[in-house]
Amino acid sequence: MVVRKRAAPPTPWSQTLAEPKIDDSAFVHSFSNLIGDVQVEANVLIAPGTSIRADEGTPFYIGEGTNIQDGVVIHGLEKGRVVGDDGQEYSVWIGKEACITHMALIHGPAYIGDDCFIGFRSTIFNARVGEGCIVMMHALIQDVEVPPGKYVPSGAVITNQQQADRLPEVTESDRHFAHHVVEVNEALRVGYQCAENQACITPIRQQLGKSIKDINQSDYRNSVTSMSLSSNIVAQVRSLLSQGYSIGAEYANKRRFKTKSWLTGGTFEGRADQ
């Protein structure tokens, strides 16, 4: 299990190089980005493609057993803090057993209570979401305090306190739905651990090579295969271009291949950025 953590880069607003504090039992996927003063408690799962950057607003707290799914972004404004359950000030506080699902954006100052569920692509910014709340997909919660145990349906935009107070209570079926999404992630967690274990991945890779050949389906639209060249040729072409040479191309149309079917593709000028 590779835990990749990095100190925050020195910025005009933070000269300290704080490092994340990660509990040994937490799983942080190596394809995630975790920097600055972030406290990660026991049994937290941080999936690939997440970006947790305490380089502007700090610190962040991620409570025990919480699930941070793929593509989640956690960041904070330089100003503005919330009070966590321990009485300290945080830029982002996420409680115990919470589930932050795919592509959610948690932007501090933000407080997310214990057992909360934040649905796909929802945004929490400058807000407190009380314990046990369920926020569904594509929702926006900003500048409000959502009382504990509320249900925020998909697509909702909650930006004033009256709206937040009128939200319905969470029902058993909502909880069931949320639980299912968490289960999905638990299944994938096995996959992550497998992928980081070489013995486990070899048979899959071999199978993969075989199955690519089985697909012969073609489509009128994009029958151009990618024109990749070997890295050697690319390197040579680049070095020629960088010396100021121009390159001309001539090619034959495959379908109309007969005499005089060669076409001239014009010349390419060398450019430093190519």
Binding site: G49, S51, V73, L105, R121, G191, A195, I212
Partner: peptide, 22 residues
């Protein structure tokens, strides 16, 4: 929703994923 710039430029593949050449 906002488009987030990817935190990594690589493509991450986990499990049985088959990508056809084209």
């Amino acid at each position: 929703p906002l488009i987030q710039p990817p935190s990594r430029s690589e493509v991450s593949i986990i499990g049985e994923v088959i990508i056809h050449e084209g």
